[in-house]
Amino acid sequence: MLTLTNISKQIDQRQILKAVSLTVKDGETLCIVGPSGAGKTTLLRIITGLIDYDQGQIQLNQREFRPSRDNLQQGVIGGVFQDFRLFPHLTTLENVMLAPKLTGLLSADEARQQATELLTQLGLEQQAQQYTFQLSGGQKQRVSIARALALKPQILCYDEPTSALDPNLRDSVSQLLLQLKQTGMTQIVVTHDLTFAEQIAAQTYHLAPLQ
């Protein structure tokens, strides 16, 4: 369970987030919706530890958690970027096995084995040896998800997972997220696509822009 209490963030002396509080229970999918500029990406960047917050508290499973500083043992919150950000110089398989191998979570062999399994699970076994520029948008997204899953995160976050894809892929993304939910994955999804939110979410959090 992830709990944010009164999280605030300023960037360049501008208040971007003010006293954001929310809870995501284990196995639940939370949708964060809100207009453009409301701070949804910023909130995800805080949750995934890319940036720090100014005030407030984050708890992971009832224990104080600082995503930007805490290490693997204290918990992992994985993320899938809007534009995927796969590593172009690595194959699909290497993209997925890199982090567990380098962080020491798994041995090289275990990391390879796990990456193969994840790719198979996501229907990408054919693409394992391809470089990422050869993949379609939907495939890139699934590699990005596999890459994040490889660190065995407690929670997986997505920033606008449908925005960089063909509209007709929306259903397959929601199916994938539902499929992950069935494996027990806790997920946080930023979107402003309300139909999509309805398809996947049990809970919705509205992030209102500050003014």
Binding site: L72, D83, R85, L151
Partner: peptide
């Protein structure tokens, strides 16, 4: 090198040297 590549690696808990 795209800053996004570095962020992706940070999110995967890689150390600066890695």
């Amino acid at each position: 090198v795209d800053q996004g590549q570095i962020e992706a690696a940070q999110m995967l808990k890689l150390k600066p040297k890695q």
